[in-house]
Design a protein around this nucleic acid. Structure first.
Lengths: 241, 241
DNA sequence: GCCAAGAGGTACGGTTCCGTACTGAAATAA
DNA sequence: TTATTTCAGTACGGAACCGTACCTCTTGGC
């Protein structure tokens, strides 16, 4: 075993992008984790303890204010890492971050992560590009929230979740979809019904299966796709492959 | 004159926060600029030519998609700098960025700016904290877009603009407010009317004056304030004062 | 001073979505 | 199995906002 912590089998795209030298900085501190849905990763206004590189599952980042208004501002899967504030030089969480769909991955405590970022320009560049991609996603969430109809937003969300899963099954209740989109649960139910009638999805209690992804993409229109394309570009720029 | 480019009189908060050593890296490349309203600073999918440190005026950052949906995702004034992607290691603009309210400041070409960021850890830390603050603003814009009513969003915008101006007069048409909020022009007119009747603002053609800031803050509620507080915290952390 | 262009006031039917609430069905615990 | 909880289906009045349109007032250019 050439490396203290093997990464050959890991699906996480950022970990795959880390150079051999940088891997030596990070790997000794990684710890395998398995997180169930609803497991909390970051709490608003509290210190961030770890950055999570997930290989599976979907993480929701939810902005909250003092009157308890809340809405999802981004999702993270195997393409990224949680703890964006750490990358930006902050140790405190602004948003509520938790597993929307359970999964497995690795985490690194905030201190060695920040140390590694300080030491390695290449690691920093990689993580900054990821953070930038996440920013773009948030900006387009703002766009969708302000401009898109419920069905379009739901379609966008399903596509983003589907991108991060290995099956077509999305194990989520209408209730949680509603919280993320910032709409009524009943509204989600009706929209999903419409999708179902059009053959875009099939449903079971607590689960929803993508049946016709292209159809869903048509519903989402241009509200979906820009952040995904930008992230691909940013990651392609980041050497090594 | 100890410095090649004096900054004593500059209002820009980030420039004020730059250390003496870092100032030596940046100052030689700065160029004074005066920008009229509607002047374009960044064009989506085109290279960013300069970062602008404004001393006055308000910059709008507007996300756009392929079907020409658009909405403002952030505003920048004397507290920050444009060209966030440069700070993140990207040279391309994602969003449409332009002066919403004209002003004056200084700009630095992207290359020396990126060079300076690469060379100085302290400058990088400062700019990253700013970029992080801007991210938080964008997240709360997403929250407001998804959860707040038109009046609350208008109030939030007015407060953010007011924060960045030295007078109570906000020189903007209903049309442009509508574009930024992603609503109908007529809707803005009605909302402003309501504000006027309540004594919150006074109006003139192409202008709107804040008459009762606290009243406007009450309308905005908790949709306003979080990003502002977080940016203060982040800037306080960044030495030197 | 006149005219074109821009800005703002107002209206109206229509759509979307909310708040609320009740019901039945499915999963889970006892 | 039974009891309990969670989830989903459905409904209804109402609020918010849209799309569109038209008209009037300023303002700036000639």
């Amino acid at each position: 075993m050439l490396e203290s912590h093997p990464r050959a089998g890991l699906r996480n795209r950022l970990i795959q992008k880390i150079s051999v030298d940088d891997w030596a900085l990070v790997a000794p501190h990684l710890e395998a984790v398995s997180l169930r849905e609803r497991q909390v990763v970051e709490v608003p206004n509290k210190p961030i303890t770890h950055a999570y590189f997930m290989d599976s599952g979907v993480v929701s980042v939810v902005a909250v204010d003092k009157e308890d208004h809340r809405i999802e501002v981004g999702v993270i899967g195997y393409e990224g890492v949680t703890g964006v504030p750490l990358i930006m030089g902050d140790t405190r969480a602004q948003h509520s971050t938790y597993m929307q769909i359970g999964g497995a991955g690795h985490r690194i405590p905030q201190e060695p992560f920040r140390d590694a970022l300080a030491k390695s320009e290449t690691l920093r560049a990689l993580m900054l590009k990821w953070a930038h991609g996440f920013m773009i996603q948030t900006a387009h969430t703002a766009l969708a929230n302000g401009r898109a109809k419920l069905e379009q937003r739901l379609a966008r969300w399903l596509l983003m979740a589907h991108d991060r899963l290995t099956t077509d099954a999305v194990p989520l209740t209408h209730e949680f979809l509603a919280v993320m989109l910032g709409v009524r649960r009943a509204g989600v139910t009706v929209a999903i019904h419409s999708f179902e009638r059009r053959g875009l999805v099939t449903t079971r209690r607590g689960q929803l299966t993508v049946a016709n992804r292209e159809g869903i993409e048509q519903v989402a229109g241009s509200f979906y796709g820009v952040p995904e394309a930008e992230l691909r570009r940013l990651m392609d720029e980041a050497r090594p492959a």
